[in-house]
């Protein structure tokens, strides 16, 4: 669906120094399914997406979307729906008219406009001007615009921006439903929990480079499974013993202790604490989260965020 190879984008500043926004990204997005695109602010996610959509001219590298190079993007654009950053519509036109204007370009019927407004929950407010919409409504209209063409490939840049919790859940369900219908969704997001729940595959970028790629489970397992939680009668004393031994140990609110250690080496903790007359009541490995993985990967690449 998407192939980028050695993608690079430099911006020249007035002072003469170049800013590298994207630094040799290689990316393969296969479909169907949901492909997450993660990275801290300024890591080059949006610039990459703009390059994929022909909005920004890459300084180097190649891009193919649905098998076509960017110069021939027009031949497949009817199968691509995209939302880049903030929703952008004519403020004085109604939501419906904004969609109608886009729909005219591809000969999309008015009934399809209403159908999409229904999907994104804006049927009732379709006749109101775009500028009167809340941020969440604007975002939903923008997602609606990407769905108008019933595209095979949907590129969403921060689609949950501005949505309330219910809206975020709706968006998650919508993305999953589209993927289940055979669509390919390439989504960049800061909502790590949502990404973990929604995405099948991930690419994490930092400083314009890909630093990890793979299935969500693999990415999480690769970096996020290095904690154990222990339950013990004397948590304060146990914490002190572990810290004295150089372990990163932290007492949690429920009086359990989290210790950073490879679970396969947890026997050492048992031995050490037993040596001080403290016996474990329970020990369990802590399943890492995408957030842990993301922070660890990006912090190590950026030297701390």
């Amino acid at each position: 669906m998407i192939e980028a190879s050695g993608l690079r984008k430099e911006y020249s500043s007035l002072r003469g120094s170049d800013v590298v926004a994207v630094d040799g990204i290689d990316l393969v997005v296969e479909g169907p399914g949901v492909h997450g695109f993660l990275g801290p602010n300024g890591s080059g996610k949006t610039t990459t997406i703009r390059c994929l959509l022909g909005l920004v001219r890459p300084s180097a590298g190649s891009v193919r979307v649905l098998g076509e190079e960017i110069s021939r993007l027009h031949t497949v654009i009817g199968r691509v729906g995209a939302l880049v950053e903030t929703p952008k519509f004519f403020p004085t036109f109604t939501g419906r008219k904004n969609l109608l204007m886009l729909g005219h370009l591809s000969g999309i019927s008015a009934s399809r406009i209403d159908e999409v407004l229904d999907i994104v929950g804006l049927r009732e407010r379709g006749g109101d001007s775009f500028k009167s919409y809340s941020l969440g409504m604007k975002q939903r209209l923008a997602v609606g615009a990407t769905l108008l063409k019933d595209p095979d490939l949907i590129i969403l840049d921060e689609p949950a921006n501005g949505l309330d919790p219910a809206g975020i859940v709706e968006m998650r369900r919508l993305i999953r439903r589209l993927a289940d219908d055979g669509k390919t969704i390439f989504v960049s997001s800061h909502q790590l929990g949502e990404v973990q729940l929604t995405c099948d595959v991930l690419t994490i970028v930092s400083r314009g480079q890909v630093i990890r790629s793979g299935s969500v489970a693999d990415v999480v397992a690769s970096v996020g499974n290095r904690h154990v939680r222990i339950t013990i009668e004397d948590p304060a004393g146990a914490e002190q013993v572990l810290r004295s031994a150089g372990y990163a140990a932290r007492r949690d609110i429920d009086d359990t202790i989290s210790v950073e250690i490879d679970p396969r080496e947890a026997a050492r903790l048992t031995e050490m604490l037993a040596g001080t007359g403290r016996y474990l009541q329970a020990l369990e490995p802590v399943q890492g989260s995408l957030e842990d993985a993301f922070l660890e990967l990006t912090e190590s690449n950026e030297g701390g965020v």
Binding site: L53, L55, I77, V80, K88, F90
Partner: peptide, 18 residues
């Protein structure tokens, strides 16, 4: 100018990239 301000040019180019 209004299109640059509202950013709608981007939307248009996502439908007609030529």
């Amino acid at each position: 100018g209004g299109e640059y301000r509202a950013g709608t040019l981007e939307n248009l180019l996502l439908w007609e990239p030529r």
